[in-house]
Amino acid sequence: MLINTVLMTLLAVVTIAIVRQRSLFGVVILASVYSFLMASVLVVLDAVDVAMTEASVGAGISTVLLLATLHLIKTTEIRSVRPHLMPLVISVGTGAILVWGTLVLPPFGTPDAVIHQHVAARYVADTIKDTGVPNVVTSVLADYRSYDTLGETTVIFTAGIGVMLLLHRARRRGRSNDGET
């Protein structure tokens, strides 16, 4: 309970700091801190596989890529002239609806929740018999739900190729312009 309170308070503090921070370098570092806090929350929730992904991707790789992007652009956010009321209303409203939605969810960790009644029970019971792999997360990701993971890998492939095409094309265009002048 105490650790939950501490983590949630820190998350809120970091979020407010990100919103108020004008230096983009500070924003990137704070976003990295946010990801580490999120990874800790996921460890508290016993989702260690997801926590590992959050720590390595959210706090690690995306921070590096954002810093690399900052190297290419200006590093100060332009202060907006007038306050944006509409986005604030929309985000607070969406947040309130989401919180309202959680009120009807079964309590965390309830074994007879709907989500645990469908195929999940079979996966947990049969993973050793079917696949010989004790980590249910791995057997679900790579075996029972193999199609989904194939899709995810293809998404990473597509996204990577897309970003590289964009960056490489811009570089080539810049080079040819240099040649003409």
């Binding site: 890529l65 690399a68 790579a142 590289m164 960056l167 490489h168």
Partner: peptide, 23 residues
């Protein structure tokens, strides 16, 4: 399958960093 995921993820992340660093 996990080997395939490892190869694609590791190389995509590295290639993305290379692309940003080159620019």
């Amino acid at each position: 399958v996990e080997a395939g995921v490892l190869i694609t993820v590791a190389s995509t992340m590295t290639a993305l960093f290379y692309a940003f660093a080159e620019r």
